[in-house]
Amino acid sequence: MSEYVPGTCNIGEQERRRRYRIAYAAFALAIAYVAVVAAASVPAVLVLGAFAPLAVGIEWYVQGRESFCVRLAWRGRFSFGGDRGSVSDADARRRDRRHAAELTAISILAAAVLTAVSYVAVAAV
């Protein structure tokens, strides 16, 4: 998408690519962290430290996929390349914030599930 749509789209292609780069870096960090914990002689519970980079990675990936920035939504803003602006309509801001909360909740839940699966896998080794 290339234009603001309340509760659906508030970022353009440039912002989407940026979110993908950050998501991939966070995923790489989480994978490396779990691998180190699995290979080291440390308690498996340390795998729970992968939750934070997984949550960041998932949220930023979902934001890129959805063309929707959670932070901009909470601030009542949008960004499409050089076109940045404010959302003046109160209903549109509510829709944006509701969608932002949904994306964050989905990301946290997915990160919790992946962290639990990682813990079970490392504990079994």
Rank of each mutant, 00 (worst) to 15 (best):
R98G: 05
R19T: 05
L103R: 03
V56I: 14
R94P: 00
Y24G: 07
G57P: 02
G81V: 01
V62D: 02
D83E: 14
T115A: 02
V34Q: 04
A44L: 04
A110S: 13
L46S: 07
R94A: 15
E59L: 15
C69H: 00
S107F: 09
A52I: 12
A124E: 15
R16G: 04
I58R: 00
G81A: 05
A30Y: 08
F51D: 06
G57A: 03
F27A: 07
A28E: 06
V70M: 09
E59P: 00
Y20V: 12
A123F: 09
R18L: 13
V37I: 15
S41Y: 09
W60V: 11
L103P: 02
D96V: 02
A44D: 10
A25S: 13
A25M: 13
A111Y: 08
I31S: 06
S2A: 12
V120W: 08
S67A: 14
I22D: 05
E3F: 13
A100K: 04
D89E: 11
A35P: 03
L46C: 09
L48P: 01
L103Y: 01
Y119L: 15
R77A: 13
A55E: 08
Q14W: 12
G81N: 00
A28C: 07
G57F: 03
F80R: 07
L109Y: 01
S88M: 12
Y119C: 00
G49Y: 01
C69N: 06
A111G: 06
P6D: 00
A28S: 12
F68D: 03
S79N: 10
V45A: 15
E13Y: 10
F51E: 04
R75K: 15
W74Q: 09
R16N: 05
A110Y: 07
R84H: 14
A55I: 04
G76L: 04
Y20C: 03
L54G: 06
V45F: 14
Y20N: 02
E15P: 00
L109W: 05
V5N: 03
V120F: 11
M1S: 14
A25C: 08
S41W: 11
R95K: 15
R19F: 13
V62H: 02
A30I: 06
C9N: 12
V37F: 01
A101H: 08
R19W: 09
A92W: 06
V87Q: 01
A121S: 11
V62C: 01
M1L: 11
D91C: 03
S86A: 14
V56D: 08
A73S: 08
L72M: 08
R95E: 13
F68P: 03
A116Y: 10
V42F: 07
A30C: 05
S107M: 08
V113E: 04
A50D: 04
A105W: 04
P43D: 12
D91W: 09
A44S: 14
G64P: 01
T8C: 03
R75C: 09
A90G: 10
N10W: 06
S107Y: 09
E15R: 10
N10E: 02
A110N: 05
F80W: 07
F27V: 04
V42T: 11
A26K: 01
A110C: 12
L29I: 15
T104L: 14
A32S: 14
S107P: 10
L72G: 10
I108V: 14
A40H: 03
